[in-house]
Simulated assay, not measured.
Amino acid sequence: MEANQKLELVDRKHLVLEGVRRVESFDEKEITLDTAMGFLTLKGEGLHITHLDLQKGNLSAEGRFTGFWFTEAKGRGRGKGTGLMKRLLK
């Protein structure tokens, strides 16, 4: 898979994402993903994954999306929280 990422959001309800490597965690309020360009956290309400194809790197999700947070690919360690823990333990 190439190191490309594409995110499409329609009406804050329907999300299509390309470049997904792995789903780190998910529930109805948060989805955390390892993508081709780093980690991505999606926040919202009533979130659910409607399609996932890790071979092609595609993910579709629905719900009410309220925020997106990107974490750079450098230091790709164990996923969510790695950067924060390093800063706290310095």
Rank of each mutant, 00 (worst) to 15 (best):
L89D: 09
M37N: 11
F39I: 15
E8Q: 13
R64P: 00
G79S: 08
R64L: 11
G79D: 09
K56W: 05
R78Y: 11
R21C: 07
G79I: 01
T41P: 00
D53A: 01
L52M: 06
T50Y: 05
L40R: 00
E28C: 11
F68W: 11
K80L: 11
G81A: 00
G38Y: 00
V16L: 07
K29E: 13
F26K: 02
L47N: 02
R21N: 14
L59N: 04
E2N: 08
K13G: 12
G38T: 03
A3G: 03
E2M: 04
A73H: 01
K13P: 08
D11V: 07
R12Y: 15
V10R: 09
T71E: 15
N4E: 12
L17M: 09
G44L: 03
D34M: 06
E24D: 13
R22I: 00
R64V: 13
K74W: 05
E72S: 14
K80I: 08
D11C: 01
G46V: 09
A73K: 03
R22A: 13
K13F: 04
T50Q: 03
K6I: 08
G75C: 00
T71Q: 10
L9R: 04
A61Q: 02
E45L: 08
I31E: 04
F39D: 06
M85F: 15
T66V: 01
M1Q: 11
G63K: 03
G67K: 02
G79T: 03
T32N: 09
A36V: 10
L17A: 01
D27P: 11
R21A: 06
F39R: 01
L84P: 01
T71L: 11
T41H: 07
E72P: 15
G81W: 01
E30V: 07
K43A: 08
R87T: 13
I31M: 00
L15P: 10
L84Y: 15
N4K: 06
F70N: 12
K13V: 15
R21S: 09
